[in-house]
Design a protein around this nucleic acid. Structure first.
Length: 710
RNA sequence: GGCGCGGUAGCUCAGCUGGUUAGAGCGCAGGAUUCAUAAUCCUGAGGUCGGCGGUUCAAGCCCGCCUCGCGCUACCA
């Protein structure tokens, strides 16, 4: 494979129903931003696109809850996301949105093409329909009692109380969120993408990098967990996936297609196409042609995402692109794992997060400090951790003490000794190099090493190893500190002024290199260093490449006689109080979450309703785990007059041997149901607290079996 | 339960296709130094590489079993 002619880089489209947190940043945005900034600095043709994902049922429901329109919701969060990204320095070429007309047109064109080519399979299934609102109900539009935890407000796809995944037909007493009416089952037709048919080429492409005999990527350049996840899906056998939904918020299925009425595109069909429509809009805005970026084989398409999106970007979207026929497929999908916060998973609903829009307000001017810490702890190969203490330590020890201090030392001394003018040197003079071993001539010593380190940073970035790249950047700065320490210009100035000039000139070259090399990671700092050096700010247009060329030619990168500015602190220490305040904020959240939440009392029932329940005392005689399940135990319960087999979802809390002989209460007249092939004849009564912990509700000692509870 | 990824110094993490005394940063201990935002530099202590077994002349790296964390999936009458 040869070097690509151009790059099209995407970051996952954030969903426009909430603000941005550090997990998003660490997952899909910072890594992409480093990558594209580096490419631009090397004079590459690259377009970096992103935008708000503004469709899907969650947004309409949110709108309904807030008493507003879906458009108002997405407008609000699109604005929030857009400004937050800008403030933290994510350098999209365009941040678009899927509610834009050009996106609707683009995704409809895709649908139309796939339909015309006969790629879809139409299938009719039974689905809930709200007769009073005369429309089909998406999973999220149906609420009912959770069959698992009896939470009365479970959604059709998931119960937020117990976290179980549900399907709408499982809900007890389902009702429509639109009208409150009881929905009826009615058949509806959808267009399915037959992923099973693409399985063979997808497998070959993922595992060998080859598609129709052409090598498109080297599989060992893909991350382990990405390949593993793909193989897992492929081995499990891909199933046809519906590309349409019965919704009223989203991209319409093209009108001329029969049966399109009331149908919208599935968000996972529509969202990735958002990358394409964003590129189109960018091309219009900049007088460019979008097509080569998506349709020319010499373009490298790279998707930056979090691990939750792997299947969509590695299998489903490539399948859509290839089914269309005119498009290239990604050369790599360097997905990151998840970032945890202070030992716990980030959670939007539990407010367990560091919100980026809050950070940029509370820590104004410290954008790079957050970027640095996030890159240093980026979850590249496994889940990683953000802690405020760690943030403080890296800031104080690495940014202030190492990087900013080195630069400050050089700038201060240059101003002191030479009134801020880069000194002319005698190139034959020798200085001690940073390993403090051999004395070498000026050009051989630091500048050769500098060139190698800059090269090394590039190699790491090209391999998506951003943590490693950042580490090398800091090594350059450490080397600079050593240079000063070993040569001690503050002492030498008294005896050997000419050699001091060599030391200081070298230090200045290193600072200049840092102003370029730090750019992908710390763009704001790059500007600050350029200002201090009295050099023009970088325009992200080949400057890294120029720098390497000059160094390999043995040319200096900051010429003699250049006048620099006065010193200015690049970073300042973050005191304990600031960190303590942030930790206190999280503790307050934790406390709020810990507050026991009680479920609302259900609707009042008549005494007769209660008497319909036949509750009995019983004793567990036997208990064994149901094979191939995590939660199920098969129990035999003695009711005195008979024995019942009961399957109960308590295996996570109780070992079979520990509950034999346990007195329990059993709902004895519940209709039997088969679970994993075993008929369960009744239900054991359990109490569940707000943490989801279960315990038996038992009669007191000595109560025999089979007696009625009333 | 199935599948995938991971479990390496007190902390955060590197370790390429198996090959000499297992690495980095922070933290810790001792020393040097003062140009610099009490910053910097040097030296050192710290690990039976999750556990057990196997393959091999040789295993952190390969194989099997077990265990813990995370994700996907099945699943909670």
């Amino acid at each position: 494979m040869q070097e690509p002619k151009r790059y099209l880089v995407t970051s996952a489209l954030p969903y426009a129903n909430g603000p941005l947190h550090i997990g998003h940043l660490a997952g899909a945005y910072l890594s992409a931003d480093i990558f594209v900034r580096f490419l631009r600095l090397n004079g590459k043709d690259v377009v970096y696109v992103c935008g708000s994902d503004e469709h899907g049922a969650a947004i309409t429901i949110r709108a309904k809850k807030d008493g507003t329109t879906p458009q108002a919701i997405v407008d609000r969060y699109d604005e929030s996301l857009r400004t937050t990204f800008e403030k933290i320095g994510i350098s999209f070429d365009i941040y678009h949105r899927t509610s834009a007309p050009i996106h609707h047109e683009t995704s409809q064109e895709f649908f139309r093409t796939l339909n015309q080519k006969g790629e879809f399979v139409e299938q009719t299934k039974e689905q809930y329909f709200d007769e009073s609102a005369s429309q089909f109900l998406a999973d999220r539009y149906i609420i009912g009692t959770c069959p698992k935890c009896s939470h009365p407000e479970a959604y059709g796809d998931q119960c937020e109380n117990c976290g179980s995944t549900l399907s709408p037909t499982e809900l007890i007493d389902p009702r429509s969120t639109l009208s409150g009416a009881k929905p009826v089952l009615k058949s509806t037709t959808h267009w399915y993408l037959p992923l099973d048919k693409y399985e063979d080429w997808l497998r070959e492409w993922v595992e060998t990098g080859k598609l129709e005999g052409e090598l498109l990527h080297y599989p060992d350049e893909w991350k382990n967990h990405v390949l593993g996840q793909c193989k897992s899906w492929l081995d499990g056998g891909l199933q046809p996936r519906a590309m349409t939904r019965d919704l009223d918020w989203g991209v319409d299925v093209p009108q001329e297609i029969e049966g399109s009425e009331g149908k919208k595109l599935y968000v996972w069909m529509d969202a990735p196409i958002g990358y394409i429509s964003a590129t189109k809009q960018w091309a219009i805005d900049n007088g460019k042609d979008w097509k080569p970026y998506w349709q020319d084989k010499e373009t490298a398409l790279v998707h930056f995402i979090g691990k939750d999106n792997i299947v969509f970007h590695c299998l489903i979207f490539p399948a859509i692109l290839k089914a269309h026929g005119d498009y290239i497929i990604p050369v790599n999908v360097p997905a990151n794992q998840f970032l945890n916060l202070e030992g716990r998973k980030l959670s939007t609903s539990k407010n367990w997060a560091v919100w980026v829009h809050e950070y940029v307000e509370e820590f104004e001017g410290k954008e790079d400090e957050l970027r640095y810490n996030m890159i240093k702890n980026m979850p590249e190969q496994r889940d990683s951790e953000f802690t405020w203490k760690g943030y403080q330590e890296t800031n104080n020890n690495e940014l202030v003490n190492n990087l900013a201090n080195f630069i400050n030392r050089v700038i201060v001394l240059t101003n002191k000794y030479y009134d801020g003018v880069v000194p002319t040197i005698n190139p034959d003079l020798q200085i001690v190099d940073s390993s403090n071993q051999i004395e070498m001539s000026y050009q051989e010593s630091e500048l050769v090493d500098l060139h190698d380190k800059l090269q090394e940073i590039g190699e790491h970035i090209r391999k998506y190893e951003f943590r490693a790249a950042l580490k090398v950047l800091m090594e350059i700065s450490s080397t600079g500190n050593q240079l000063l320490q070993f040569n001690e210009p503050w002492k030498l100035i008294k005896t050997d002024e000419e050699t001091v000039k060599v030391v200081m000139n070298t230090g200045l070259q290193v600072v200049t290199a840092l102003s370029v090399a730090c750019r992908p990671f710390l763009p704001f700092t790059s500007d600050k260093i350029r200002d201090i050096l009295n050099l023009p700010r970088l325009e992200d247009n080949g400057e890294y490449m120029d720098l390497l060329n000059k160094l390999s030619e043995g040319e200096v990168i900051l010429p003699d006689g250049h006048k620099i500015n006065k010193p200015n602190h690049l970073f300042t220490k973050i005191p304990d109080e600031v960190i303590d305040a942030q930790i206190a904020k999280l503790e307050a959240t934790e406390k709020a979450n810990k507050g026991v939440s009680y479920e609302p009392v259900k609707e009042t029932i008549a005494f007769d309703d209660f008497t319909k329940l036949d509750l009995r005392t019983g004793t567990i005689l036997t208990a064994e785990k149901v094979r191939k399940t995590k939660k199920l135990l098969k129990l035999t319960v003695d009711l005195g007059f008979e024995e019942r087999t009961v399957v109960s979802g308590i295996a996570e809390f109780f070992k079979p041997e520990d509950i034999i002989g346990k007195q329990v209460l059993l709902l004895a007249n519940l209709a039997p149901r088969k679970l994993k092939g075993i008929e369960s004849q009744g239900m054991i009564l359990m109490a569940e607290n707000s943490d989801g912990v279960l315990d038996f509700v038992s009669p007191g000692d000595g109560m025999g079996n089979g007696f009625v509870v009333k």
